[in-house]
C-alpha cells in the first residue's frame, strides 16, 4: 500500500472509533486545507452514510472573506450541518487583534469561544485536523488527547497510547480531542489534495492581492477594518497562503504557485515551516503549548 493510502486508512480508523465510542462528537472545521482533507476523510470513513456528527466552525469574525464564502458553499453542496459559534460577548466588547494584540484575540475569540461552544452543545469529543509536524508541542500529543472538565490538557499526564488501540473512555464533563491526521505532513496534505481532487479555498493559490509589509511579514488587507499606519498603502503583490487563520494574524508568502502542481513543488522546496506565517506562535517561547493547556485546539 502506498504512503498516502496508508495515512488515509489510519485516519479513517480513528474517525470510526470516535463515531462508535462517543455520544456527541463534533468535527472542528476551520475552512483551511487541513479541514478540507479532514472533511474528505470523514466522508470516506462513513460512506455511504454521511458523517454522523456536525461540523463546528469557531468564527472569530476576522477570517478572510473568501474563507467564509467557501464554507457556505461547502455546507450547501455537501448537505452537512455546519454549526457556527462566535464569542459574542467578547465581540461586543470590541475585542480585536488590532486593539488588544494577538494573545487576547486568540484567547477570547478562539480558545474561550471553543470552550463556550463545546459546553453549549455538550460535545464529548472534538475532532481536529492538527498534525504533529506543525509544531513542537503538537508533536507530543496523543491521537486521542484527553481533556479535563475544564478543557485543559495536561502534557505531563497523557494516557499511554499503544498500537491503534484508543482509550476513548471519559467521565461526565470530560472530553477528548481526536486528531485523525496526526501523522500527516504538509507535503502529504498537498499530495493528497491533488490525488483526490479536493476543493480548497482559493487563497492557497497565488494571485495579485492587496498587501502591506510589517516586521518582514506580508499581510493581506482583506477589508476596511485593517488599520493602515500613516502613509501606509496596500500594494498589489503576487502572494499565496501556506496556512489560513485570522487575516491579521496570517502572513502571506510571495509565490507564483497558481496550480496544485505548483504548490506541491513549492512545498517540496520550502525552507521555512508553514507555521512561520502564523504570528500567534511567536507570542512567547512555548506559547502553543500554553494555549493548548488552556483549551486551544
Amino acid at each position: 500500500m502506498d504512503h498516502l493510502s496508508n495515512l488515509e486508512a489510519e485516519s479513517i480508523q480513528i474517525f470510526r472509533e470516535v463515531a462508535a465510542t462517543f455520544e456527541r462528537p463534533v468535527m472542528m472545521y476551520s475552512i483551511g486545507k487541513d479541514s478540507s482533507v479532514l472533511l474528505h476523510l470523514a466522508r470516506k470513513a462513513f460512506y455511504p452514510s454521511i458523517p454522523p456528527f456536525p461540523l463546528l466552525h469557531i468564527d472569530t469574525s476576522w477570517k478572510f472573506r473568501e474563507m467564509i464564502a467557501f464554507r457556505d458553499q461547502i455546507e450547501k453542496s455537501l448537505g452537512i450541518r455546519v454549526l457556527i459559534h462566535r464569542n459574542e460577548e467578547a465581540l461586543s466588547q470590541g475585542i480585536s487583534v488590532f486593539t488588544h494584540g494577538s494573545a487576547v484575540h486568540t484567547d477570547q475569540l478562539k480558545t474561550v469561544a471553543l470552550r463556550q461552544a463545546l459546553d453549549k452543545f455538550n460535545f464529548d469529543c472534538a475532532i481536529g485536523g492538527a498534525r504533529r509536524d506543525e509544531e513542537r508541542s503538537r508533536a507530543k500529543e496523543r491521537i486521542m488527547s484527553f481533556r479535563s472538565q475544564h478543557h485543559r490538557w495536561d502534557p505531563k499526564r497523557q494516557r499511554p497510547e499503544l498500537w491503534h488501540l484508543y482509550n476513548t473512555r471519559i467521565n461526565p464533563g470530560e472530553s477528548v480531542r481526536a486528531f485523525p491526521m496526526s501523522n500527516w505532513t504538509e507535503l502529504d496534505i498537498w499530495q493528497y489534495i491533488r490525488r483526490e481532487n479536493i476543493p480548497v479555498v482559493s487563497l492557497y493559490y497565488a494571485k495579485e492581492r492587496p498587501t502591506v509589509e510589517r516586521d518582514g511579514q506580508i499581510l493581506m488587507v482583506d477589508d476596511d477594518r485593517f488599520p493602515l499606519n500613516p502613509g501606509e498603502k496596500p500594494v498589489m503583490r503576487m502572494v499565496r497562503f501556506r496556512t489560513l487563520g485570522c487575516y491579521p494574524l496570517t502572513a502571506a508568502v510571495e509565490s507564483d504557485a497558481a496550480t496544485i502542481d505548483d504548490i506541491v513543488q513549492e512545498t517540496l522546496s520550502a525552507r521555512t515551516s508553514e507555521r512561520a506565517g502564523r504570528l500567534i506562535d511567536y507570542d512567547k517561547p512555548g506559547s502553543m503549548e500554553q494555549k493548548k493547556i488552556e483549551g486551544y485546539f
Binding site: 513542537r136 508541542s137 507530543k140 512555548g286
Partner: peptide, 10 residues
Amino acid sequence: LLVDGLQAER
C-alpha cells in the same frame, strides 16, 4: 530542543 517540545522538558 528540536524534539523536546514541552516547556517542562526544555
